[in-house]
Structure formats: C-alpha cells, structure tokens
Design a protein around this nucleic acid. Structure first.
Lengths: 145, 145
DNA sequence: TGTTTGTAATTAACATGTGAATTACATCTT
DNA sequence: AAGATGTAATTCACATGTTAATTACAAACA
C-alpha cells in the first residue's frame, strides 16, 4: 500500500475544508475585532451558561494555555467574567456578560445566512450526512488511546 | 432557523475531526523533532519535485509568512535547499535534499500503518466516501468569492 | 530613460497551537 | 499536623496562523 498523496490525505483534506468554510466567516469576525477562538469561547458560554475553564476548553476545542490568554483578553473587553469558586481556590466560574451576549445576538442573523448559503450550495442532505460522518469519525477515533 | 450549536457547527466539527486524526501522527513527528507543517512541506516536495514558494505554499496549505519561516528552519537542518531562478530575482526553486527524502522514506511504513488502522476502524468505504465528500465541499466553496 | 503598475517574498505585530515546566490548591496518608 | 500525591491553571519557549505593511524585483508604458 502506498501512503496517501498530499492531495488526498485525510488531515490535509480536513484542513482545507475548514479553510474554505472559515473564509466565509472571517470578514464578519474581523468587522467586530474578534478572533475565531474568542468567538468560539463566547458562543459556548452563551449556549451552556457559566463553566469552569477545563470544561470550557474542551467544549471550545481550545488548549488550556490558549484559553488563559483568551480569558484575559475577553475580560479586558468586558465580554466575559471570572469568579472564583468557594471551597476550591483553583477553579473559577467563567460566564459571558450581557455585552458579550449582545455581540453574539447581533451576529446571529449574518451567521445563519452564511450557514444557509453553504448548505444551499452543497445540498442540505449532503451537508447533514457530512456532519454525521465526521461525528462518527470523531467518535471512533477519540475512544482510541 | 436557529444557528447550529457549537456541537454541530461545521467548522468546529472539522477542527475536532482533524485533532483526533492528528493525535495519531504527533508522536511519530515528535520523535523526529519535526513539526506537522514542516512534514507537509517535505512531503509535497518529495511528491512533486522542486517548486517555487507560492506553488509550494498552496499545495501544503501554508501561508506565505509561515512558509518563509519553515524554509529557514529546514534549510538549516539541510532537509531542503533554495536556489534562485535566473531571469527572475524574486523567485527561487525549493527542493528536498537526499537527507529530507531519507526522512520521508524512513517514516513511510509507520505512516502507512497509522492510516490503515484508522481506515480499518472507520471502514474503508466510509473512509473513501468521507474524502470524496470533503473534496466536493472544497470544490463547491472554493469557487465562491 | 524614468515612472508607474504589478507580483513574489519577506517582515512586522499580535494571537493561537503545542509540549514542558511551574505554581497554587486539594486531597490522601500516616 | 506534615509530607506525598493529584489536579487545575498558569507560565514559558518556540512554531505557526493571520493580516497589514514593506521590500525586491519585473513588466508595461509614457
């Protein structure tokens, strides 16, 4: 068996797919001076309510060192808050502020429109199937060592 | 229509999929003190022969500023070379060295084994179908502005 | 020839990715 | 209580991602 060519290797194909999709969202994020990762953190907090750092990092697919820096930036902009948990001085509860929530909600319509356009071009059924197959791959491989 | 939850957004799902796959390759790369991106650059050069920087960046999905740094690192380790093109002082031909090629070839068996294991767990047909669907998505979206 | 326009690559500045080390607490153990 | 062990978060060091600005060179053109 030959190794896959770079044009058909799974990691590179996933990378390129992500790039072409994110290209649609970058202008919107840039207009609001927010990075893709900061955006993910805020969306997770908006969806789930206050979380501790480890849980937030996992849900936003961001590594702890990055999250530390992102929290600092978002706190300075008053888009999120950090409150120490009693009984355990290591942990803190991270929450989105009303300003942060307002940002998310302001962008929601544009965000939905972008997703709908992608889905329309690619085909709604294919789109859902692709998501299912990716989730299945994640499930399969994340249970490995 | 609601916006997709973070657990089913296409960009985040692509990101997580890439993470679980790359987790299998990272130990191999770390043992040889090479980054994922350096590895991509060397593989592209090994496959295609000498290329100019713009072409190489495109094929390896690496942005020009990153490629500049990677070239410097790989040149210092004598894994690739850079030769100016006559007639155009801006361009240079980038090529893998015998040492670089030896590195690629040394790792080939382990690389193939990793791919085969993933394919076996996920299912060969599903695996090919997923690649087809991703390429189709890339095709669809890359022709958009 | 000299100027303008275009293109390839680099540099700059800042954010994030990544693995290793460290700090700050908790908990367990004796 | 004191030490050992475990855990959450941070810090460090370096590589890459990202956009904007700059440099170096080519090509077109007045």
């Amino acid at each position: 068996m030959l190794p896959p060519s770079t044009r058909r290797s799974l990691p590179m194909t996933l990378l390129r797919a992500r790039e072409v999709i994110m290209a649609h969202f970058r202008p919107m994020l840039a207009r609001h001076d927010i990075t893709e990762q900061q955006w993910r953190v805020l969306r997770v907090l908006a969806e789930t309510g206050p979380l501790e750092a480890t849980e937030l990092a996992g849900r936003a697919s961001i590594l702890p060192p990055s999250l530390t820096r992102i929290i600092k930036a978002l706190e300075e902009r008053r888009l999120m808050t950090r409150n120490r948990v009693k009984d355990d001085g290591r942990r803190a509860l991270l929450a989105i502020t009303p300003s942060g929530l307002a940002l998310i909600e302001d962008l929601a319509p544009e965000r939905i429109a972008i997703y709908e356009a992608i889905e329309a071009r690619y085909g709604a059924e294919q789109y859902e199937q692709l998501l299912d197959m990716l989730e299945s791959l994640i499930q399969t491989e994340s249970s490995e060592s």
